[in-house]
Amino acid sequence: MTTDALRITGLSHRFGSVPALSDVSLTVPRGSFTALLGVNGAGKTTLFSLVTRLYSNVSGSIEVAGYDVRRQPAQAMARLGVVFQSRALDADLSVAQNLAYHAALHGMGRRAARDRIAQVLAQVDLESRAGDRVSALSGGQQRRAEIARALIHRPDLLLLDEATVGLDVKSRAEVLALTRRLIASEGVSALWATHILDEIGPDDALVILHKGRVLQSGQAAAIAGPAGLTQTFLSLTGAAA
């Protein structure tokens, strides 16, 4: 049986009395690029924090590749690669050292890690920068290094939380194209959180999140309809405001 890369059912979360997510359900099919679209404060990062166990979900369920993150956290986390919204590489260490550290955190032996580091750095076109300190890389290169790090343990699902924030147009396009390529080459699925509509293609799976609720989900072209994605998004979120 083929399970979804990510299945979230009836997920709710509150910060004190403030609801952050209300009855969120969504799936990321295997091998898909799924965009999670929402304005700042929509609940995207909260959702990611729940999937990655930085917060604990108390209602609803989250399954990564069929493993419940609360009941089977080790299996679920082993199948998850994460690119956080804020940069999470150690700027004082080299690119390869950062990747080696991450490989160790997934229990990968030294030899396996060394081979895999070379492989993923080639995929993100950073082989020549392996020995350079992260602080010496450009913003776009750092993002690519983070994607390489997220891939090191061969996850089933990549979570990318506004991975293009702070990048120039060219770097943004490169990071997006790289993620789409990896779906084919690595057989990974991606949940791409963004508030930039240009990053969503007509064939992508799309989930629109607003004020902690899923407003629409399905193929982007079908959701956009004849009015186009921008108009539809404004109309949906305006109605929900």
Binding site: P73, A74, Q75, D92, A100, Y101, A104, G107, G109
Partner: peptide
Amino acid sequence: MTERRFPARAWFTAFRGIAWRETLRFVQQ
């Protein structure tokens, strides 16, 4: 218990990785 899925070597590798990073930072400072 889900933690048992890792062989002993993987636990050691993870510990060594964390210790290695701390040592690297210490040497650099």
